[in-house]
């Protein structure tokens, strides 16, 4: 099989096939907003006898590849869980490396931002930015500033984020702005979340076979309209082909489940 992979045209053929498959999926229904919990970088590094930081780098490359597929398929927004507030309890060395990685990758994205230019990706940094070191915060915000005029797709980078912090932040904001209590609704709370203004989350993907949400986008995920997909592969092993399969399966499931979910929601108004 190796000779096929090394044959000169193979890469182009694969690339072409991928693009065509994306076009095919794009013609059907595709989730408007996909969330990713990138789990398993460290385990991957351990399995392949790498250093932890190399695992994180591999994870970043996977993310770039998957996002490309998503945007090619017509996904409007993607949200990635880059760093949890709880992650600050990891070893200092690792945090330092992660921060360095974030900074350098952001610089790369901003300077020769293929992804951003080609897909018109608007980068938004979500989370409690006060907790970040000043230099990292600046470079992240710079990336956000530079891409703010892009309109076609959104990439939310959650760093450092937890859903409970997000909900608290939203509630605090609402109270601080002094809304009339009568006007406070679910939609208002949703709008004031960090993910406000982005299409509703319709698919959440978690890797490495953990059946938990780990404090990521809880408010958005419990929605009846949102499906959760749990994969047994580690994050760096997540191939674009698998992503295509998941999006395809989502589209197929949607056709069957749409009616069922609607029936579930019919009574919704009464329950509120």
């Amino acid at each position: 099989m190796d000779w096929i992979a090394s044959f000169p045209v193979t890469r182009h053929v694969l690339e072409y096939t991928k693009k065509q498959l994306c076009q095919v999926l794009r013609s059907g229904s595709v989730p408007q907003h996909v969330g990713f919990i990138m789990d398993g970088n460290r385990r991957y590094a351990r399995m392949n006898k790498m250093e932890t930081k190399e695992g994180h780098s591999a994870g970043f490359d996977t993310m770039a590849r998957l996002l490309e597929v998503c945007y090619d398929c017509g996904v409007q927004a993607a949200t990635v869980f880059a760093f949890s507030i709880e992650n600050f309890s990891r070893s200092e060395y690792e945090i330092e490396w992660l921060m360095k990685l974030a900074k350098s990758k952001m610089k790369q994205v901003v300077e020769n931002g293929e992804l951003c230019h080609k897909y018109g990706v608007k980068i938004r940094i979500l989370g409690n930015l006060k907790l970040l070191p000043a230099d990292v915060r600046e470079s992240l915000l710079e990336a956000q500033e530079m891409t703010k005029n892009n309109e076609r797709a959104v990439l939310n980078i959650c760093c450092p984020y937890t859903a409970r912090d997000d909900i608290t932040h939203s509630i605090k904001n609402i109270i601080a702005r002094g809304y009339d209590p009568e006007d406070i609704t679910q939609d208002l709370v949703s709008e004031h979340l960090y993910t406000g203004g982005v299409p509703k989350l319709q698919l959440l993907i978690r890797t490495s076979g953990v059946y938990r949400l780990s404090d990521f986008m809880l408010w958005e995920t419990v929605d009846v309209d949102c499906d959760v997909e749990i994969l047994s592969v580690l994050w760096p092993q997540f191939t674009p082909l698998l992503m295509l399969w998941i999006l395809f399966k989502w589209g197929w499931n949607r056709t069957g489940r749409a009616r069922r979910n609607k029936r579930l929601l019919e009574n919704h108004g009464k329950d509120d």
């Binding site: 959760v228 997909e229 579930l264």
Partner: peptide, 19 residues
């Protein structure tokens, strides 16, 4: 038949294992 939280209290799903 499939994983969907159906509006389960969001605050309470933080570290719960789902099956």
């Amino acid at each position: 038949p499939y994983l969907n939280l159906q509006g389960y209290p969001p605050w309470h799903t933080r570290l719960s294992e789902m099956y």
